[in-house]
Amino acid sequence: MKQDYVLHLADTHLILGQRLGEWCGHNVVLEQDIAMSNIALDLLGQCRSLYQYAAELGGNKQTEDQLAFLRGERQYKNHLLVEQPNGDFAFTIARQFFFDVYHQLLCEELVKCSDKQLQAIAEKSLKEVRYHLTWSSEWMIRLGDGTTESHQRLQTAVNELWMWTHELTTTASYEEALDVPRPSDFKAAWHAKVSAILKEATLEIPAESTKQAGGKEGVHTEHLGFILSEMQMMQRTYPGMTW
């Protein structure tokens, strides 16, 4: 049960880190290429701590690498939001911003939970996440309140991503059963923060629409399979390889 929860956290960090890493060498300007690679690196570092803990919870039958690279699609418990393709720069920024708001709220709650290891990981992550959120919030405002083109592109991204954001503040059965934060408890806080920045960015808050969920239970969009095939290629081609 607890391993499911820790894997859910680890998978979300890993998949978003992988997505951000896809920008490396392709970004619009060098400074933002470096920014996204740095954020990806923070997320990968955080997911390593989480996978190591998940391995320990599973009695070390699987290593952190096996958990990260040798599970099948249905065993991944990441949010659907983070597996969505990068799209254009605006799309990546909106996805990151929605995630960062959630991530900060999650870490602020996790530092108070009864599990010492999750507490320690969250305490460490929180300092990094605050910096990510400042960066993505600034970009929301810069693009939203920027040119007609940047405003329109970001509004499109916000509208298209909106249905995936619902899952960030849903509570899965394994979260109900453990002494860990329930994301549904910070739904209002997530909306308040997101709305404030969207407003400052002169963007419209999308109307309630279809809500997509299932990632936390292992039911994914078609995109995850492609990410995994690329990410797991080395481990599947050379089983057991290490750095």
């Binding site: 470096i34 920014a35 740095n38």
Partner: peptide, 9 residues
């Protein structure tokens, strides 16, 4: 400031 991120974290 030129960028919030640099060559290392």
């Amino acid at each position: 400031m030129l960028a919030q991120f640099g060559s290392t974290a």
